[in-house]
């Protein structure tokens, strides 16, 4: 019965082909360092899911941001758990993505034909750091407020363009409701969309080129 259903679907969707091409790929001999890319992807999805749950109660307005997070932590069943996962997952994701990059560097896997995979990976790291930066402001507490003040100030130190960059990031000369709102938009729409697109191309390239072998003494 199930076999019939599966065969019917497979004939139309090509499930077996998808399985063969995506998951049943040849891999170089197992090495735990090679799992870090998948770990990054898992963390991204985890952040996405917990982030979506947070938006059920979080309010990106100076009047309510702090209170709404207080409410998540104390008022809602398991709110502390959802926020805790998102909070610690954020730091973990930055660390894992960075170690993934180090392993690609150490094994020299960025060389021909994988230069584009590397470049897109750099974009992924920057977008991940951007997620951390924009997310940090959202609780709208003292720490968040001053971290963003300093962070945007640093971006403002760029020669010539600095003042413009500062105002574009803050949505004006000072931190305000506009800053919180645009950081929120970047955090839940713009950067996740960019990350999703980049991850797609990154994975496509990995499937296309296969995984690199570890360099041996001869290389």
């Amino acid at each position: 019965m199930w076999k019939k259903v599966f065969d019917w679907l497979d004939e139309r969707l090509g499930l077996n082909d998808i399985y063969k091409n995506l998951l049943d790929r040849p891999e170089p001999k197992g090495n735990w360092w090679n799992t870090l890319g998948s770990a990054s992807l898992f963390l991204f999805i985890l952040q996405g899911v917990t982030g979506i749950f947070l938006t059920v109660y979080y309010t990106p307005s100076p009047d309510h941001a702090y209170d709404s997070i207080q409410y998540i932590m104390e008022g809602v069943a398991y709110g502390w758990l959802i926020r805790g996962i998102h909070h610690w997952g954020a730091s973990l994701m930055v660390i894992i993505v960075f170690i993934h990059l180090l392993r690609v560097f150490v094994t020299a896997s960025y060389k021909y034909p994988r230069e584009m995979t590397w470049l897109i990976g750099v974009g992924l790291l920057l977008a991940t750091l951007g997620m951390g930066f924009t997310g940090y402001l959202l609780p709208w507490n003292q720490r968040a407020y001053w971290a963003t003040t300093v962070g945007t100030q640093i971006a403002g130190a760029v020669p010539f363009m600095g003042d413009f960059i500062l105002k574009a990031l803050r949505g004006g000369p000072d931190l305000s409701a506009l800053t919180l709102q645009r950081f929120f938009a970047a955090h839940i729409w713009i950067l996740p969309a960019a990350l999703t697109g980049l991850v797609g191309v990154h994975l496509y390239l990995i499937i296309k080129h296969g995984e690199s072998h570890f360099p041996t003494r001869e290389d």
Partner: peptide, 12 residues
């Protein structure tokens, strides 16, 4: 399970 409780909490 916690995720479901989290969502329906206000209704409870």
């Amino acid at each position: 399970l916690p995720a479901v409780y989290y969502l329906i909490d206000p209704a409870l």
